[in-house]
Every structure is written in structure tokens, then in C-alpha cells.
Amino acid sequence: MNVFRLTGDLSHLAAIIILLLKIWKSRSCAGISGKSQILFALVFTTRYLDLLTSFISLYNTSMKIIYVGCAYATVYLIYAKFRATYDGNHDTFRVEFLVVPVGGLAFLVNHDFSPLEILWTFSIYLESVAILPQLFMISKTGEAETITTHYLFCLGVYRALYLFNWIWRFYFEGFFDMIAIVAGVVQTILYCDFFYLYITKVLKGKKLSLPA
């Protein structure tokens, strides 16, 4: 555990909590892609199946349970409790275009051809692109609420910090996981355009809106 890894995890946790609280307090999930949230729930479910088979640390176990629990709570708020506020007309990204190729890739490129390892690999690949329905929704409506941009910023920061974590681990532990690194780089790149808008607009007190 290094400082990049820990702050990355905390940034990820902050993102998840920000989104849950935003929906809960406003009693609305307007502007939030339910499809991205379903993909994240699928990511955590397929990755954390090892909760049942191995114990790494109390930190590891409790964070996994919190992440997966919050993911399902978010999906529940969007599709059940506050369903009337869900903006399905703008949440039109075709998730099968992500899930099917990612599933195929997980079968072809993995560390070990076993069910748990293929599901873990699937979760890594899927996480790298799971935010696309949300970014697509923002590009369609042309705007995002400021609190939604804070959520996205924390998610992007988490991924960027994990890249520093892997550089650290490579130098000090001689450890690297090529699957996680390549997927992590892809995921971070997807946020770059958003980071630019966040820094040039949101941090200067303006609402994030895209030119028509």
C-alpha cells in the first residue's frame, strides 16, 4: 500500500458517496446514466467474487463490500426509488457494444484461463469503458450539473492516482500487471477531455455546458 493507492481508493470512495448523496438529497437522478451505474455494479460483482474465496486484509474486504453495496444502492435509487426522475430518453448508449467485445477480449487476453480469472479480467476491461454511457449522455444533453462533474472528477482522479501507484509498484516492488495497466491507461485517457472542461469551467464557477 502506497500513498497513491490509498488516495486513489479514497477518491473512488468519495465519487461513489457523492453520487449516492446527490441522488438521495435531491431525490432525483436526472442527468445520471443508469446504464453506467449498472455497468459499475457488474464490474464490482465480477471482480470481487474473490471475497468468497480469499482474504487479503480487513481494509481490502471492507472496501470491496462498501463499493459493491453502494453500487447496488445507486442502481436501486435510479431504477426503483426515483425511477420517475430517471432520464431514460437521453441514456441511449448501446451497452451491448461494450459488454460483448469486452467479454470476448477477457476470454482471449487474460493471465489464466479459469472462470474467476476471466471474470476478474472482464471487470478490469469493463471498468475502463463503463463511464462511456455517462459521458455520452452529457454530450447528448450538452450539460451536466456541477455535483455530477465533481463525481466524474473524483472517478477520473482515482484512475490517474492508480497509474502513479503502478509506477511506484514497478520501481519499488518490481511488480506490474499489464492487463490492469493498459486498461487503466485507456480509462484515464477517456477522462482527459472531461478534466479539461472541469478545470477551465467548473473550477471557475461556471456550469459545465458544451457548445451546441
Binding site: 493507492r5 481508493d9 473512488h12 474473490d50 480469499s54 487479503i56 486484509s57 481490502n60 472496501m63 470491496k64 463499493y67 493471465h111 489464466d112 480469472e117 476478474w120 479480467t121 492508480y162 501507484n165 511488480f175 500487471d177 499489464m178 492487463i179 490492469a180
Partner: peptide, 10 residues
């Protein structure tokens, strides 16, 4: 042996 995946990470 085959490279191990980063199971200690989240």
C-alpha cells in the same frame, strides 16, 4: 510461471 493479477488492489 504466468503473471499474477493484482488481486490486492480494488
Amino acid at each position: 510461471g504466468p503473471q499474477k493479477s493484482t488481486k490486492d488492489e480494488l
